Simulated scan of single mutants.
Amino acid sequence: MLVRAVVGTDLPWLQELLVNSWGAVHVITGENGRDADRLPALVAEDATGERVGLLTYELAATGLEIVTLDAVRPHAGIGTALLDAARAVAADAGCTRLWLITTSDNLEALRFYQRRGMRIRDVRPGAVQRARLRKPRIAEAGEFGIALRDELELELSLATPDACVRPGTLADVKPVLGLLDGATRWLAGRGRTGQWGTGPHSTNPRRLTAMMRWVPQGHLHVAEIGGAVVGAIVVGEAPENIPVVYEPELYVNLLVTDRARQGRRLGTLLLDHARVLAVRRGIGLLRVDCYAGDDRALVDWYRRQGFTPTETFTVRLTTGVDWPGQVLEQRL
């Protein structure tokens, strides 16, 4: 199987394939409508030179998005060859992830992509219904008669797995506080002071006391790259202001990563570590709370990590300001 970049003479064949597979060259995924015949593409050829597969894609800051993937012959390795080629393109471009959007009825695609290492990162209820307003020809039902309503985002991480997670020590307290200071400056620089304010954590006696208590209790765990602490997670018991659950749980009390290493999926790595700790202890519930103000971006991030929002709460700060919080949970 040969996979190559699309050339001008492929255009009539490419357009015909898109129309046969997608109903038109204009496809809608997520909130984006695009003419797939104008996108970069990869073409698969068999040993005779016949074109047997097509993958169109778009490169962006968030990675390489697969827009369409079609194999003329099923179960012949065409899709796998195209996916491997797209991964190579993404790696060459310095992308940290390969991703795509498919519909909830597309069971064959979900099987195919997950067997090749991709993971479901987001569920978008009603996305197909919204797309139908822009493209009325989208059918009401898809494969196996499943109603076409929702979309799923799948992702393959391309980040180099060079970070490791280990139990924290007292020597890690200072660098972890430095990460909190850096994250606070990063948020403040974007006008997002509601989450952690603007003051440093490293000189906050309350924060320092909490850190010194978490270490001997075994609650602090840090992510490390080349000997440098680049992230931290604290797991233990839920704070007093959080609604009680009457079952064993592991609670994420703190999660912070180095903002200079965005795109390295350090937050996901640390949450995966918390999941492993919970399972090893025979615990089936992982909970966390986060800032729920502004545009609820942090809540959405935890949703993409597989958490489900539950209760909301409010904390009255010493400044007299109410701090809005959201509790989220994940069943393991």
Rank of each mutant, 00 (worst) to 15 (best):
D322Y: 12
S104R: 00
V19R: 14
P40M: 02
R121P: 06
I233W: 06
W22Y: 14
V6R: 13
L271R: 02
W22N: 10
V67Q: 03
R130W: 09
L271Q: 05
A147Q: 14
G236N: 03
E153F: 06
P205T: 07
Q15Y: 09
F112G: 01
D294A: 12
R264G: 08
R73K: 13
V27F: 00
T103Q: 02
W323L: 04
T56F: 01
T318K: 11
A5P: 09
D35Q: 08
L285M: 10
G226K: 09
A91D: 08
L100A: 08
G226A: 10
R259W: 09
A139L: 12
G218H: 01
G94K: 08
G117Q: 00
F144L: 13
G117N: 00
Y302M: 03
R73C: 10
R303L: 04
A223R: 06
M1N: 05
C290Q: 05
R87G: 15
A274F: 06
N253R: 14
W22T: 05
L154C: 01
L177S: 04
E16S: 13
V230N: 05
R190H: 08
L82N: 01
R185M: 10
Y251V: 04
D150Y: 00
N20I: 11
A232V: 05
G168N: 01
A210F: 15
Q15T: 15
Y302D: 05
T160Y: 06
A93H: 11
D322N: 14
R275I: 14
R124I: 02
R303Q: 11
V235D: 10
G236F: 04
R207P: 05
R213N: 13
N241C: 14
Q326R: 09
G267D: 06
M211V: 04
R280P: 05
D70F: 15
Y302I: 04
D35A: 11
R124A: 04
Y251E: 04
A260S: 15
L17C: 10
A260C: 12
D322W: 12
L133R: 11
L59R: 09
N32C: 11
D10F: 00
Q114P: 07
F112N: 04
L269F: 07
E16Y: 09
G226L: 11
R261P: 06
